[in-house]
Amino acid sequence: MNIMKLTHSFPCLLRGLAILGLAGVLTGCGPAGSGSGEGRESIRIAMLPKLVNIDYFDACHKGAKEAAEAVGAQLIYDGPKSPSGAEQNNFIETWIRQRVDAICVAPNQPKTIRRFVKKAKSHDIKVITWDSDAPQSGRDLFVNQVEEQALGQALIDDLAQQMDEDGKWAIAIASLDAHNLNAWRRHAIARAKEAYPEMTLVATEITKEDENLARQKVQTLLNAYPQLEGIIAFDSNSVPGAAEAIKRAGKVGEVHLTGCSTPKKMRPYIEDEILESFYLWDPTQLGGLTVRLAYRLAKGKPIKDGVEIPGYGKLNLSQSDPTTVIMSEPIRFTKENIDELDFGI
């Protein structure tokens, strides 16, 4: 045993740590000064989706890119690889250090970004939330693609109408901690309790954003509850998975399905009439609108009701909250309109 070597190398360990420690002490606790970016003429807008490598947010990116080119702003678009609020915070910190002019966040966990919104604002960076809101965070503006309550209710209303307001229904959802999906789910359940007392919710299945798992679980549900008549699937992978399950179980027409998904994934099932409808909004428009509003904010122009935004029209602010812009009503996709309304996703 080489004790000599052991004691010998220990100073190295200390030294290495001391270097890092010293560097750390230098850092202090206060906010540090600026890196660079002074004297840059173009506005720089950073856009943070819930996660990357997913068609929905990619479509938002496309819209954002076009809008940024149109107004002449520089767009940074990046985000975490899994829907994690903590990782989003790291992005916000990076961008604060790079002194961007505006940060547009689609928060995974609305409460998690509070401290970082404050930090950004203390550096004179405008913060906009889009896709889902972070109330009480002090963000400047929220671009609401569609109201949570309106969508949740639209889904259950649609299903109830298909099921004649009677019978057993089930839910397929990506995860129990995705903020948007669960808000819609809660509103749908509340609405079902209040308006459709004859309908009973029998099961909720977690599909982990996996189309095949959704298919597997829904197919099991169909066998476990032979009287099941309706399913609401809340995310873009659960709907095609559930549609496939209904198709394979040979229960087309007996079990009704609706949910939120993208036209590209749903087209074959809509054309085969396995489901009647699903819901979405225009994500390219959402991305574009967000960037244009961020640009306006960064330039110091007011955001008011009725302001004309190119490629969108007149702004529509929420009655209850003057810092919320409402983009649109949820669009109901059916066999008839799916070809006209294809948003390229």
Binding site: T27, G28, A32, G33, G35, T94
Partner: peptide
Amino acid sequence: LSGVRFDSAGDFTAYFQSYLGDLITQ
């Protein structure tokens, strides 16, 4: 690669202070 340019030594230390601080807390 991040495109940061330092105009002065003060810039440099300030940048790395916040850089290291963020890095460690993250």
